[in-house]
Computed example of a mutant assay.
Amino acid sequence: MVLVGGAVVVTGNSFLRRALDHGVDVVLDVVAGVPHVFPTFHGSLTEADEVLDRIALFLRQRLG
């Protein structure tokens, strides 16, 4: 899972493309209007709480 705030630029030549090309299960989660380290604001920023839930779901689905 790759998590970025909306201001972060993800280019076509990024590691995401290489990961996909090598068969890696990639999920890109872009959250608009948040600062770079927004997950650290859990408990005070709704988007941080929501994304931590999505991260937990991603891990549960893949790790059991």
Rank of each mutant, 00 (worst) to 15 (best):
A32N: 14
F58E: 00
L57T: 15
M1F: 14
D21R: 15
P39D: 09
L59G: 02
A19V: 07
D25R: 06
D25E: 10
A56T: 12
D25H: 06
P39R: 02
L63S: 11
F15R: 07
R60G: 11
T46V: 09
V9A: 11
L28E: 07
E47R: 09
L63D: 08
F38R: 00
V8G: 00
D21E: 15
L45S: 01
V37G: 07
G6Q: 00
V34H: 02
L3M: 10
R18G: 09
R62N: 09
V4C: 09
V26Y: 03
V4Y: 04
D25F: 06
G64C: 06
R60L: 13
F41E: 02
L63Y: 08
R18W: 15
T46C: 02
G33W: 06
F15Q: 12
L45M: 15
L52H: 05
E47T: 06
T11D: 13
G43S: 12
M1Y: 08
D49C: 11
D53W: 06
G43H: 03
D49P: 11
N13E: 15
S44Q: 13
Q61S: 11
A19N: 08
H36G: 08
E50W: 03
V8S: 01
P35S: 05
H42L: 07
A56R: 12
V24N: 05
D53N: 11
E47W: 04
D29T: 15
R17Y: 07
G33V: 04
G6M: 04
V9E: 08
G6K: 01
L63A: 12
T40I: 12
L16T: 12
G23N: 09
G23K: 03
S44L: 11
E50Y: 05
H42T: 13
E50S: 11
S14D: 05
G43Y: 02
F15T: 10
V2W: 00
V34E: 02
F15K: 06
V30M: 09
G5Q: 00
V4R: 03
G6R: 01
F58H: 05
R60M: 10
L16R: 09
L16H: 05
D53R: 14
R62F: 00
A32S: 15
V34Q: 04
A56V: 12
G12H: 09
P39C: 10
F58D: 01
D21Q: 14
R17Q: 10
D29R: 15
L57P: 07
R18L: 14
E50N: 09
Q61E: 13
R62A: 02
R54H: 08
P35H: 03
M1Q: 10
L20T: 12
F38Q: 02
A48I: 04
H36S: 06
G43N: 07
V2P: 00
L28I: 02
H42I: 09
